[in-house]
Design a protein around this nucleic acid. Sequence first.
RNA 1: UGCUCAGUAGCUCAAUGGCAGAGCAUUCGGCUGUUAACCGAAGGGUUGUAGGUUCGAGCCCUACCUGAGCAGCCA
Length: 436
Amino acid sequence: MGMRNRVYIDNIFRHEIADGTEVTLKGWLYNKRSSGKLVFLLLRDGTGTIQCTVYKPTVGDDMFGVADKIAQESSFTITGNIHKDERAPGGYEIQVSRVELIHQAVDYPITPKEHGPEFLMDNRHLWLRSKNQHAIMRIRHTVIKAIRDFFDGRGFTLVDTPIFTPAACEGTTTLFETEYFDSKAYLAQSGQLYAEAGAMALGKVYCFGPTFRAEKSKTRRHLTEFWMVEPEVAFNDLYDNMELAEDFLEYIVQTVLRERAQELNILERDTSKLANVKAPFPRVHYEEAVKIIRESGLPFESGNDFGAPDEAAISAKYDRPVIVHHYPAAVKAFYMKRDPNEPDKALAMDILAPEGYGEIVGGSQREDDYDTLLQRIKEHDLPPEAFDWYLDLRRYGSVPHAGFGLGVERTVTWICGIQHLREAIPFPRMIHRLKP
RNA sequence: UGCUCAGUAGCUCAAUGGCAGAGCAUUCGGCUGUUAACCGAAGGGUUGUAGGUUCGAGCCCUACCUGAGCAGCCA
């Protein structure tokens, strides 16, 4: 009895347990409806939600009183028989024979009505229990698993890169500074430079961890702490890099479509747009992208980097992610190699997600010549002594190599079809958000 | 950092410069089939803060605080 028959709601909806079986479920009250001698308890247990019907003549007055007084998000144990019923949400319910309260919740703040973003973010630790947030977290989990499976299946080695770093990686964005004994350390804004060292040791590597940027961004596309996966491959050029990235994105999206159909349905995602995400992706040279922007009616000066409206104009032309390559070297990072045939262009590529979700991938072939790289460091006013170890990679068996970074939250936001990056991570960190 | 908008009950929102309101949540009562259940009742307010205009300010003006959206930065 009891624990021996304990099951998860998931087991019931997957038909792993026969109709009529007596089971025990443990979870929290999602919602309740009562009707005199009948109480409907919506139980959630992390794997799903199921309706439990408590009928007064069956359980008796005392136990019915318990069921009738359970408040939203209280925890309880329920025992009863699985019953197929058209009237129950999902087609199955539990006909309850026993209810045991574990803990009564008092005044749960998130009611089954609408709430504003500030209130929900203040209650993020509770908001995660809601149906949509639950679905997003499950999709995020699958995205992360797909990322690891993809690289592991292709012989990549995970190389963890440090979070405390001595200096700027790219020298562009603002870094978080922290005390490090009697000196300063900075929180990593990218693991790329270390991943390059890893690639020279292990051939094909990826790093995957949190990154930190102290930019005072206040848009729905920015977090100060976000997760990024960065593959780096020795002997790959720009075009190998593009192929890797498009196969990678296809794998992630198709995996989510296959394994998280139910969650995408809860989020009311139009999956036909995701089904298009198959390699090869359209490839657009920077100068061609400039033409597209101008044709869309936006003013644009060649040589500039793209702004958010420019990216939207480009991606609007395609039904799948689009690769933009050969950006002006002047607007890109110091470590990117230039194209010998177009010396003012970097061997760089960005991937823009469809439906206006913007840049989700940024990558390049790296500069592999010692003297050129040293010159770039000086041109960008970076201290060469901080990069001595990085320059060593060009002194001892330098090879062409390339890699890219994929933003996990932007990818999750796009796949889920949601409006805010802050919902794509359990506890977002933003300029005005450090709690909970 | 700049521009725009917002702040009224625990939450979401109303209120022409003239008595501070509703729905949800909470408490109590009613109902065997509810689907964000429904019906009846009750409690719940220093209208973000400080000042100003006015016979009278939630509403108009000034400053500040807090947040949101957009831009820049980027993934």
